[in-house]
Simulated assay, not measured.
Amino acid sequence: MLEVDREQVLAHRIAAHGLHRDETDPNTLAVFDLGLQNTQRDTAALSLAARVADEVTEESMVDDPRFVLAWTHRGAPHFHRRDELPAVTSALVPLDETDAMNRMLFQRRMVEAAGVGALDGLFATARAIREVVHEPMTKGAVSTAITKIIPSGLSAWCRGCQATHVSEQVMRLAAVHGGTRLEAGASPATLAPLEGSPPMRTEPDPAAATAVVVAYLRLHGPATPTEAAGFVGTTATVAKRMWPDGLTEVRVDGRKAFLPTGDVPALENPPEPGVVRLLPPWDPFLQARDRGLLVPDKARQKEIWKIIGNPGALLVHGEVAGTWRTKAAGRKRLDFTFHPFWTLRPAVKREVEAEAERVAAVRGFPELRVAWTG
């Protein structure tokens, strides 16, 4: 049995995620096998800038016809390769009622109380979206329209909106099954018909679901069913039904985990992780569910993964070495604040500041100012 330590695993993941910046074409990046999350306007572009050598702008993903933005994994917005979205959509059909209810995440109790099964509610909402969205419509307009035609239990009073409308998570999970995408770069969030969308599928596709787990293991492995389930948004029991063949058991600091057998040589001999990168909030590297492996100190985990308002992460020579935030000072200057977890050498700080220049350029700021808290 192969035994490795966390440093070797992190070196392997840095290479798997393309963070050595060896590629020039975004389409070749393995992170798109799962999708590139775009929770804020520029997070996907900054994740791209950390991985490709060519110039990246805020519009790089918006203007590239090879990619499409949609609410997919866990209802979060992800860029996917356009020609792979049908397979992703099939993978997102819950395996059964229990799986569907698990995917409701923070709104599970509301759906349970609705008196409508999670599967029935999901696809009733998807059919309503197909009926309503024939041209680009803001999220609010879609919500208002479908609330009138879906089962009443799937709606609730929203204090923020001061209105009764469909459950947020139900709508997000249903949108791609309803044949819609998100308009990349639009604010507020805007749904639009997905060109060439196939008829809605309601039967699960176990092979497609398993392909998502394989992609997770290739990017975030060695990993366990519980960790893969966390990415999918379900339970370990369900994830085991998606579990692929062709895996090798690996011991990571004594803990049992699994990796596709074909990736074992890459884990055994990963390249040195001698890179410095500024990872934005929700970067794919930070989406691994074994946060204790990425950042062993629990207090520091709380600094990186917050309930609201995650910072970016400093990746320094194989370790998450601190956090960073930015604030615009007018239209020309972007101010950076770096909070390292330990003292960084002057040469490393210079590398960090060079990456800050790249981030500022992505966001369209010709000037920047840097402050260090330690």
Results as ranks from 00 to 15, higher is better:
Leu278Arg: 06
Leu46Ser: 06
Lys139Tyr: 04
Val166Pro: 04
Ala49Asp: 05
Leu368Val: 03
Gly18Cys: 05
Pro366Asn: 06
Gly115Lys: 01
Val56Asn: 00
Cys161Lys: 14
Leu344Lys: 07
His134Pro: 02
Gly230Ile: 01
Ala209Thr: 11
Gly140Lys: 11
Trp342Thr: 10
Trp243Ser: 04
Pro346Ala: 06
Thr89Lys: 00
His177Val: 01
Arg130Lys: 13
Val362Ser: 10
Arg13Lys: 08
Glu319Thr: 11
Glu131Phe: 07
Arg289Lys: 14
Glu319Lys: 15
His165Cys: 06
Ile307Ala: 12
Thr57Ala: 09
Glu55His: 14
Arg241Val: 02
Asp25Glu: 13
Gly179Ile: 09
Glu249Ala: 15
Glu59Phe: 03
Arg369Cys: 03
Gln37Pro: 08
Arg6His: 06
Lys148Cys: 00
Arg331Phe: 13
Ala321Lys: 09
Val320Ala: 07
Lys327Tyr: 04
Val4Gly: 11
Ala49Lys: 10
Ala361Ser: 13
Gly75Ile: 06
Asn102Arg: 10
Gly233Met: 11
Pro346Tyr: 09
Thr144Ser: 15
Thr248Leu: 00
Gln8Gly: 05
Ala211Met: 02
Phe67Ile: 01
Glu183Tyr: 03
Asp283Lys: 05
Asp253Leu: 07
Trp71Val: 00
Ala118Cys: 10
Glu112Met: 12
Thr144Ile: 09
Arg82Cys: 05
Thr43Met: 05
